[in-house]
Design a protein around this nucleic acid. Structure first.
Lengths: 408, 408
DNA sequence: CTGAAAGCGCTAACAA
DNA sequence: TTGTTAGCGCTTTCAG
């Protein structure tokens, strides 16, 4: 093992240069792959580098170039399969472009988010993808955007930040079609289980506005309200059930609902955690699904085809959400590199997938298992930023049917 | 908005110093929180920094200090819920210690892994946690370890790398107790579904050796073989079914097995993806579980309590695997900082949890849902590195029962 | 308490 | 083609 100077620090380019008997400039040229070098010195340097097992120091390089080839991703919880998939897709896309990923979880804690944003900024990521935990995040994020850091919002829009790109799902209309499906089956007393139920008054009053400007759970509640109204049904507060984002809590909420209001014939859950709690509750309550009560979940997960009855769900394009956000981010990074020309006022319709099979097609097991749906995106330019809306769709399975007492 | 020099680059400490009318040294002292500064200049500098919305450049700082406060994590796929949870736990632990996390997926592709390792090294992570994709990874990792980079292996051991810490699960004995449970119920024709089935000849011959030195799927197969042998049953090749890590492929493999050998009364699956395929296959085949056939899965996931019958599984401490690896890594990083004193030849038993409830206790829904089990770890010093073995345990639920034709 | 200056490891002009 | 030198943004002696 060759002797190393300066303690046991990894060898620097000057060690290599000395070992090879050339200047640091030539060493740099061959090691960094820029400029010219004669085959002779090239060989000498490469040999020396190998002997010392030299690895270039990316920090120094980044310090000079002003770019780290790293993007930051801030989500609430990678342990959550929704984000796990989205994050996975992000890494795939950015890696293909030569970027690495710094990942942080916030657990919806504002302080954790603040810190994550700050650290990413200090580490000089070239761009940032954030699933903001609340509208309060807007100010902090605005600072980044103003400073020129490429930024893309994932899953949760922030209407007060029109200058930044946002990649979301058309939650409101997905929820509308889920509830519409129940209505068509003949249901009237349709309950909804949501994290956002506490926002009901506000959302009801603003229901005519753009539901997808809300966080996902609220957007889905807006869709529920819209579908009910369209069916000529007045949303009853008693049917709008709150539950925190927790399976057991959701199960208890559902059990309470069923006790309090046995006339409910259908339940729409605004996310997969709540849906799993509802499934557990129904199993425990002894109510038959779909004969006594129909159930619709949100987010198509593996287990939804494993339980009996197989769950009718809204499938949202988890991975595509991540990949789209990543692509958008890379584009912004590229733009910035090339001098920051802005694409003001663009408005366009982007088809990222082929034609969708008609919603409501009964699946045959394999066909209805969670897959990577081709989503269709709509891009709308707002000021400088684009809002990309990916489309989910209803996957009808066995947990929904006509209400009891209906001659089928 | 204050005028900024040098294009639109973020302001550096010299801009702040100039704006505040002090030297860069004092500016650095207040901004970096080291050394002393009078309240007067402190105020001036802080004001200036705020005006320019200054953020220290972590790259420069890291270049000087020789540490990045960042750890790398390389897994095969964060989309996989097992790794998603482990990674989540890693971030929690390292963040609490002030570290960020660079994450890379390899998809078990050696080239991707090679690149990931190299990039992490160039980015000068302070430590690295790797779930190596095969024994071939050993050489590349050895280079890192030799260079003094703190390194911890996660989930997959590498016996040829005794100098590095490895955090794994006692897969062999977990599998042994799972299969033992089936044997005690009276099963004789017990099949196993495994990614490692192709290694059967080698594993059978080496079965007396340390099963946990193998990758998890193989270690579990070793456990199966051991349990069969202990019960006086000769493992038949026909009962050892191969399947790739894919739900649908697993389902097909199980359907083929059932057609080929209808006498099979129990099936042990060596991971959760294969188990979900097996559940799907059983549902499709019309065989009743556990009346016709018993099923045991590996890795306790949400859905295993949602399906009917609820699945008997081996629960492994996913999150704890991650947190333990992270703690180990932090300790190594600390050691290195303090001069690299080595803890040679340590051998100890570490109890990280309280007494375990007896295996086999029937759960009541909530109690048997996936949780964060208190695992018990065994640490064994081998050369310089420690092998920490976390304990999983069998959770008996409804998918296992006596074989058909047994008077119960 | 404050400032000048050297230097972390590398790249990029500019000369030779 | 090669070497010298300045400098990326910050920290850290060492004088003052």
């Amino acid at each position: 093992m060759p002797h190393r100077e300066r303690g046991s620090n990894p060898p620097s380019i000057v060690e290599v240069a000395r070992e090879a008997g050339v200047s640091t400039a030539t060493a740099g040229r061959v090691l960094g792959g820029y400029g010219q070098a004669s085959p002779a010195s090239r060989a000498k340097v490469e040999d020396a580098a190998r002997r010392l097992s030299y690895r270039p120091n990316g920090l120094a390089r980044s310090l000079i170039h002003g770019s780290t080839e790293t993007v930051g991703v801030i989500v609430t919880d990678v342990g959550n399969s929704f984000f796990a998939n989205a994050v996975r897709a992000v890494t795939d896309v950015v890696r293909a472009a030569g970027y690495e990923m710094l990942l942080a979880n916030t657990d919806s804690d504002p302080e954790a988010e603040r810190r994550a944003i700050q650290v990413m900024w200090e580490k000089r990521v070239d761009g940032l993808i954030v699933a903001p935990q609340s509208p309060d995040s807007a100010d902090r994020l605005r600072a980044l955007a103003d400073a020129g850091l490429p930024l893309v919002l994932l899953d949760r829009p922030l209407p007060t930040l029109p200058q930044v790109d946002q990649v979301i799902v058309n939650n409101t209309s997905c929820a509308r079609s889920a509830v519409g499906h129940l209505v068509r089956l003949g249901h009237r007393r349709i309950a909804v289980l949501s994290e956002a139920a506490e926002d009901f008054p506000r959302l009801r009053d603003a229901a005519s506005a753009d539901g997808d400007a809300e966080r996902p759970s609220a957007a889905r509640l807006v869709g529920y309200l819209a579908a009910m109204r369209r069916a000529g049904l007045t949303p009853e507060p008693g049917l709008i059930v709150h539950s925190p984002y927790d399976r057991d809590a959701a199960a208890h909420a559902v059990l309470r609902l069923l006790r309090r209001d046995p006339g409910v014939t259908a339940l729409f859950c605004t996310d997969n955690v709540l849906a799993s709690g509802a499934v557990a509750a129904l199993q425990r309550s002894g109510r038959a699904c779909p004969d006594d009560i129909s159930l619709v979940g949100f987010d198509d997960q593996e287990w939804t085809t494993l339980v009996r009855p197989r769950l009718t769900v809204v499938r949202q394009p988890n991975r595509e959400l991540g990949s789209t956000a990543a692509e958008r981010l890379l584009e912004r990074i590229r733009e910035r590199r090339e001098g920051g020309g802005s694409t003001r006022g663009t408005e366009r319709e982007a088809e990222t997938g082929g034609t969708e099979p008609a919603a409501g097609a009964r699946g045959t097991g394999k066909g209805t298992g969670p897959g990577s749906p081709r989503a269709t995106a709509t891009a709308t330019g707002t000021e400088d930023g684009q809002r990309l809306v990916l489309r989910g769709r209803l996957v009808t399975r066995d947990s929904t049917g006509p209400p009891p007492g209906t001659g089928s």
